[in-house]
Amino acid sequence: MERVLKLRRRQNIIGWGFVLPASLMIFIFYFYPIARAFVLSFQTGVGVNLKYAGLFNYQRLLADNLFKKSLGNVFIFLIIQVPIMLLLALVLASLLNDKNLRFRGFFRTAIFLPCATSLVSYAIIFRSMFALDGFVNAVLTNLSLISRPINWIGQPWTARIVVVIALTWRWTGYNMIFYLAGLQNIEPSIYEAAFIDGASGFDQFFRITIPMLKPIILLTTIMSTNGTLQLFDETMNLTNGGPANATLSVSQYIYRLSFQYSPRFGYAAAISFVIFALVAVLAFIQMRVGDTR
């Protein structure tokens, strides 16, 4: 009996020994800064002249038109882009899950490949493609679809469309991989039974695939919501928030407040905690709606 206890203690110590370094690192470099940022969000002032002011920063937010504008922008992206991307990823995943499809590996890799590109470089490539004399205008003009070049990045809604297209290109494959993994866990016999019962491919997709993938759809929705609310690289490099702040994201506004304008770190920290709260609330709602266990 004593020997068993001793062994268990030994194993426990070894286990903690493995877990501890990583946990400590996460605590020091992740949780500690988050706590400090929360404290910072109660301080107000410009540059190094910071002083405690309670909830003042959170109050100031309510009157901040640029903050409201940037929040509106990310919600536009969220509402338009996330459903398009997730639906596309689902369709692609179920197509590529077909065992009879030739070159399946090639297609999977090709669709996943955009995720391996750097956020900054793909944004810059999209900017040059959608330039006034860029690739997209050249193709559309040569196909006689448009008579004169469209100033994509120079107008609010076309600029937003370009951002949506870019985000969809970059992130669809990423979500598709989750769905493919989920599809592997669906028993093929379910589809066979459905087929024998006369269910069309359409029925199979909506009646079997989507319900069976529900937990994974929930996961990808929460991740995409989180990612879109914290959007930075794409709008920073593709449109730089323009024209007239039509694509300014909240993160870019935080960046401007911290590093381009007279720095207000306390206020910037308050905005990031509002985003944190929003992500938490949206994730909670999505879980209540999506998780019917």
Binding site: P156, G242, A244, R256, Q260, Y261, S262
Partner: peptide, 20 residues
């Protein structure tokens, strides 16, 4: 001035709005 970058961005936004 201290708030030059703030003013630059705001005027740049105004110009884009006026042109639209």
């Amino acid at each position: 001035g201290v708030y030059n970058y703030e003013a630059r961005d705001a005027v740049g936004t105004a110009i884009a709005q006026i042109l639209a």
